[in-house]
Design a protein around this nucleic acid. Structure first.
Lengths: 238, 238
DNA sequence: ATCACTAAATGAATGGCATTCATTTATTAG
DNA sequence: CTAATAAATGAATGCCATTCATTTAGTGAT
């Protein structure tokens, strides 16, 4: 509270006072319907993404988001019902970044490879969304739905029996989500510390993994699992 | 604030007043060191688990946990540094529930099957822990470490090259964590709603899955992926 | 026995958070 | 011209984790 700018109690006729707090640009409307709406889903999504990029998910609060948009926090609730809705907007935006171009182009195996790696990479940057996505009814996430449609089409074209397609995709997705967390895990996550002597097999395994350390451990594990899934699931084709 | 019970400002000599608010049993010490400590890790863990079981993770607040233990919220901070620490205690307790008995008994494949299904089942009931586990340094989670030791030993005995063991376990774990979310997903998660006509392949696939609906979809997907991983990863053995 | 120390409790802040609500007003439809 | 509405405001509300000064009961050393 900089200087108690006497903001007109319950809005007199005071008109144009420049915005007080600290928002950059300057003059803001005091209330009422503006000539063009300040907020919409696209703007909220973009602001949320910028905020996430700058401050991370801890910095994504409704207040910060409102500040970014030069608007009062409560104004957001004219456009989204809850913070969860904001996360859904972000999620659906990200779904469009996943590379599904392989389906319809090369082999099914290569298409899955491209899709899975890019899917993991996108959400490794956004792990706080994973608990949301995992339980998200796809209904109100059109881009996400579009991704599923392309992938399903690819599986169908590759000869998968229709009733196995969703299960196969879910299995891959589960692996992808879990693997996204790995990417963000600290390097020393498997350091047993003082208990190392009590866990000889595990400690040795961790050490010998670290020994040959050109590729990132998370990438090695992901590659290993993904190839296994591609081979195993591919066998379901008719 | 029930009736402003005049709680003795900064603690007079008031002695024995029975606990006011609503805690059941009755007389509680007013301050100072009790004859035996009221709190320890085991008690906190047990209380947290009971609370989670009764109210879910939303009900697990430091205040509720303290109430459960008939203690002031701030007292918890003599034993844990943060709420995250409480979640770690819970996680480590759950790790001990995972069935690793297969390792050292039957085949490697069966051991992995038993382990993976039980691991998934345990954490499907506790998905809010997954983001915590996934980044958890194992150091201060002895039961979790014990699980890894047993599993590593099983892989080694089955002929896995040492430097592949951690990667293989991580791949399986990633799949398990991702799959744990599926179990809790709503049945209609893949209902495309009004957009169904725009996503014909996907919609058809969802429908044909639902058609043959004896087994839970999450279980079908998990079984499919797990068998693929077992086959694929098993091929790494020397 | 006494005394200093310390572990373990208290309860009263603190600051941040999402969300709600009565109110205001510019624009638009009739 | 007027009534309705969409979209903003800012002031609560209630919940949350966490901090802090303070108190006190045991414990170990002298």
């Amino acid at each position: 509270m900089p200087a108690a700018a006497a903001p007109g109690t319950t809005a007199g006729t005071a008109g144009t006072s420049t915005d007080s707090t600290d928002a950059s640009k300057g003059v803001r409307r005091r209330a009422g319907r503006p000539s063009a709406a300040l907020l919409d889903h696209a703007g909220i999504t973009a602001a949320a993404l910028e905020l996430i990029g700058r401050k991370g998910y801890d910095g994504l609060t409704m207040a910060a988001l409102a500040r970014q948009l030069d608007v009062a926090p409560s104004a957001l609730y004219n456009h989204v019902a809850s913070k969860r809705d904001v996360l859904l907007l972000v999620e659906d935006h990200l779904a469009a970044l996943v590379d599904v171009s392989g389906f319809g182009a090369g082999s099914w195996e290569d298409a899955v490879r491209t899709w899975a790696w890019s899917y993991r990479d996108v959400f490794a940057q956004h792990t706080p969304l994973i608990p949301v996505i995992a339980v998200l009814p796809v209904t109100d996430a059109p881009q996400t739905l579009a991704m599923y449609e392309t992938v399903s089409g690819g599986f169908l074209a590759a000869g998968f029996p229709e009733e196995r397609i969703v299960s196969a995709i879910v299995a891959l997705e589960s692996f992808i989500f879990g693997s996204a967390y790995d990417v963000t895990a600290p390097a020393d996550i498997f350091d047993a510390g003082s208990m190392a002597s009590a866990t000889p097999h595990f400690t040795a395994a961790v050490r010998s993994l670290a020994a040959r350390g050109d590729e990132r451990p998370a990438d090695v594990a992901f590659g290993l699992g993904l190839e296994a899934l591609i081979t195993g699931l591919g066998a379901l084709r008719g």
